[in-house]
């Protein structure tokens, strides 16, 4: 994808968002219900951590605010991913033929899929997570310097996971026409990324670094800021991200050859 194409795709993404929101906010009742459940969604991740630290000394090596930092990092990333991709909705679009009208637009297939509405409410979770992130960073007395690396990793992680999920959504559609598995997988990833990877043992940590790379989305960026991450680990993480992103993108485009929409 040339840089011009990329710029065009980003422009299209934001254009689509503008009109989805315009369309969505027409009905105030709907917007209110939406605001309510976005709020609930956002508060979720913090209840578990708060209760745990209330009844015990928590997870070794991690203070309450450090955990809060980690959880909000995960919420920020997955809030963004959920905003962009909704497995059930995309599956429905494909099944019913709604995706066809979008595929005739002069943009890449991945762009079109990523620009289709996701879970609009997740933007509140992401934003709320950002606020809690700033708050916990403040409470931990963190300086701004390590945040450059943090944001970079976060961005890379978000892109990697988004592309991976995009490919899985289409794969699930082509093979079984269903999307519940991918939806559940997304929830699972969101949950698992809220806790430090060492909690899952050596095997778990390897899996979450190399196979289902949620580590790059929350744990490693957080570690970078809170303590440090070895250069080798960082290199591996980046390499894996690039590899998975590439495979996912190519896989997505290959899988689209088998795309069929409802009706003949």
């Amino acid at each position: 994808m040339t840089s011009n194409r990329l710029a065009q795709s980003i422009r299209f993404f934001f254009l689509a968002q503008r009109y989805y929101w315009k369309d969505f906010l027409v009905y105030r009742a709907q917007a209110v219900v939406w605001a309510l459940y976005s709020l609930i969604n956002f508060l979720f991740s913090y209840v578990a951590i708060t209760v745990i630290y209330n009844v015990s000394s928590g997870i070794s090596g991690w203070s309450y605010f450090q955990m809060l930092f980690l959880v909000s990092t995960a919420s920020l990333v997955f809030g963004t991913i959920n905003y962009v991709l909704s497995p059930d909705w995309i599956n429905q679009l494909m099944r019913r033929g709604g995706m066809d009208t979008r595929l005739i637009r002069p943009y890449g297939r991945a762009t079109i899929y990523l620009s289709a509405e996701g879970s609009l409410s997740s933007i509140v979770s992401a934003f709320g997570a950002f606020v809690v992130l700033i708050y916990s960073a403040f409470r931990l007395g963190l300086g701004p310097a390590p945040f450059i690396g943090y944001l970079l990793l976060l961005a890379i992680g978000t892109v990697t996971l988004t592309l991976m999920l995009l490919m899985l959504i289409v794969a699930a559609y082509v093979v079984v026409r269903g999307s519940s598995a991918v939806s559940r997988m997304l929830s699972f990833m969101s949950q698992a990324s809220s806790y430090p990877l060492p909690v899952y043992g050596i095997v778990g940590q390897l899996i979450f670094t190399l196979v289902i790379p949620i580590g790059v989305a929350s744990y490693y960026p957080s570690e970078l800021v809170l303590t440090s991450v070895g250069a080798l680990t960082l290199a591996v993480v980046l390499l894996v991200s690039v590899a998975i992103s590439t495979v996912s993108y190519l896989g997505f485009n290959r899988l689209m050859r088998h795309y069929t929409s409802g009706g003949g």
Partner: peptide
């Protein structure tokens, strides 16, 4: 949709595992 269903169950169980791992550490 058995495959899809089967995998969604798998991930539901895995989500339970997450909680268990966390509590083991706690």
């Amino acid at each position: 949709y058995r495959l899809d269903y089967f995998f969604s169950l798998v991930f539901r169980i895995l989500t339970a595992l997450v909680a268990i791992f966390v509590w083991i550490t706690v």
